[in-house]
């Protein structure tokens, strides 16, 4: 295992999973606060089981794809995924769009569940469990993609999975202890950092897939990430006054 590739892959998987796990936890906690832990936990566990099934099904398929084709496809998907995250994080940091607020997300989900409770009491446990299931599956799909994307090109799916699992366990432990959404997590800063890393991985893997011999080999990921960070910070700096100029 090459640490220069493993460290960015594991760190990216950990940080991005932290962000997604916080978002999923907010919904699961909203469900638990309205209908109790049983439907929330059952929905979350069913979601985790489906995610595990997807990983088990996809794993063997990946090993059959030629490496260059795999790097190219994953690289392009990472570019689309990572640059989408980075674009949104830049616009949030520049004040162009509102920051994601876990407190608001929690209140919205709780209110929706209470509305449903008033309308159809008998089906509510099922609907609450489904809300928990959907949150875990939808946020978890992003985690699965990131783990595969940053790990598959160099056979690092295992270490990247451990990074993601550690993040999910940390968030679950905090959620279990405080029973409230984790509002103080600097979510946009984390998304900004992950967007930079995923975009850098995307350029690197796409280039590898096209046969580009990057100078410095795996160390090129760090240099590419530095360039993305520079451009992103410049865009934030330039976006702030523009927002004031065009209210």
């Amino acid at each position: 295992m090459i640490w220069t590739t493993a460290a960015p892959a594991v760190t990216t998987a950990f940080v991005s999973s932290l962000v997604e796990a916080v978002e999923a936890l907010t919904i699961v906690l909203a469900v638990a606060s309205v209908r109790g832990w049983r439907p929330a936990a059952l929905g979350a566990l069913a979601g985790l089981a489906l995610l595990l099934l997807i990983v088990v099904a996809l794993g063997p398929l990946l090993s059959r794809v030629p490496l260059h084709a795999l790097q190219l496809v994953i690289g392009v998907l990472l570019l689309l995924f990572g640059m989408r995250w980075l674009r949104k994080a830049i616009l949030r940091a520049g004040g162009v769009i509102a920051l994601h607020d876990e407190g608001i997300a929690f209140a919205t989900e709780t209110e929706e569940l209470r509305d449903q409770a008033r309308q159809q009491e008998t089906r509510l446990d099922w609907l609450a469990g489904l809300a928990s299931f959907k949150a875990v599956v939808l946020e978890g799909l992003e985690v699965v993609f990131i783990v595969i994307a940053v790990g598959a090109g160099r056979g690092l799916v295992g270490p990247a999975s451990l990074g993601a699992l550690a993040a999910c366990l940390v968030v679950a432990a905090f959620g279990f202890v405080i029973h409230r959404p984790l509002e103080r997590v600097p979510e946009n800063t984390l998304k900004f950092a992950v967007g930079v890393m995923l975009s850098a991985f995307g350029v690197f893997w796409t280039g590898e897939g096209l046969g580009v011999p990057w100078p410095g080999e795996d160390l090129a990921i760090v240099a590419i990430a530095a360039l993305f960070l520079l451009i992103a910070l410049a865009a934030v700096a330039l976006t702030r006054p523009r927002v004031g100029a065009f209210p």
């Binding site: 995307g202 993305f228 523009r242």
Partner: peptide, 18 residues
Amino acid sequence: LLIGCLAVLFANVMKAAQ
């Protein structure tokens, strides 16, 4: 690939801000 992606990101964000 690298310069193109950086340029595309920068231009897209500037356009969105305007």
